[in-house]
């Protein structure tokens, strides 16, 4: 299997026999929620769609996999989403087949999808790699595979001698501790389960990786083995183990 990091996303190309473009956490419709919190912007959906389409065109995948949180508003679907989402999805479909793993924000997303596009919430295996939005306990079938998950919106802060000089979306990779997941390991699978948390495609979202580690907010993030956790930038640069980031903060 090959992974290709698309920094103009962030997005991933995962390739065994098929070429899958993975995009997580688009959060279309976030602007009406921002307005409720006092931040008024016009909808930036069009720009976001353009960026996804550019990714599709440069990578030429066989499938676009939306890894949850395609839309933003919960529990209701807002007017903004109702008007925008059908057009957005068909813009994608015009270029490539799509599939959606629903996330916690994707309540009733089904109404916008065609037959066969909606995958189960508990995750799915496509071409040997497991995909999960990341807010639920992963189904036992996913264990032993590389699990690619969204939901956590990881970001990293890098420091030089003097202070923080870069805050950027980043990938967080770690091994899962099955004991913490409270799921008996599937018999016969001795293989370790690794999980790769993808950064959000939406430009606004972001949680510092150290916060995810220290205050995990999902079954998945609670179950990682911290000593194996590693950080990558969106173009694939290996930053180092999470422990090195912590040294940074304590220094």
């Amino acid at each position: 299997m090959n992974l290709q990091f698309i920094s103009d996303g962030p997005a991933l190309i995962v390739e065994n026999r098929t070429r899958v473009l993975v995009v997580a956490d688009l959060h279309f419709g976030i602007e009406s929620d921002l307005a409720d919190h006092g931040w008024h912007f016009s909808s930036r959906s069009a720009e976001r769609v353009k960026k996804v389409c550019a990714c599709i065109e440069t990578t030429n995948p066989d499938l676009l996999l939306l890894l949850g949180d395609v839309k933003h508003s919960i529990p209701k679907t807002t007017r903004q989403e109702f008007f925008e989402i059908p057009g957005i999805l068909s813009a994608f479909r015009d270029l490539v087949p799509i599939m959606v793993i629903p996330g916690n924000h994707d309540i009733a997303i089904g109404r916008f999808l065609h037959d066969g596009e909606l995958l189960p919430k508990a995750g799915a295996i496509i071409d040997g790699v497991a995909y999960l939005h990341g807010h639920t306990i992963p189904s036992p079938g996913l264990l032993g595979h590389l699990i690619i998950a969204g939901h956590h919106h990881p970001m990293v802060s890098l420091h030089d001698e003097v202070g923080c000089s870069l805050r950027a979306p980043a990938y967080l990779a770690a091994e899962l501790d099955p004991a913490k997941l409270r799921r008996a390991e599937k018999k016969g699978t001795r293989r370790k389960t690794r999980v790769l948390f993808m950064p959000a495609f939406n430009e606004v979202a972001g949680f510092d990786i150290l916060r995810i580690i220290r205050h995990p907010f999902s079954p998945l993030s609670r179950s990682i083995r911290i000593d194996t956790a590693e950080v990558f930038l969106t173009e694939g640069t290996y930053v180092g183990p999470v422990s090195a980031l912590e040294d940074d903060v304590a220094a």
Binding site: L158, H159, D160, E161, S165, L166, L233, T237, Y238, V239, G240, A244, D248
Partner: peptide, 8 residues
């Protein structure tokens, strides 16, 4: 910043 981190 990235290079500083990798260097470290």
């Amino acid at each position: 910043a990235v290079i500083a981190a990798v260097r470290r």
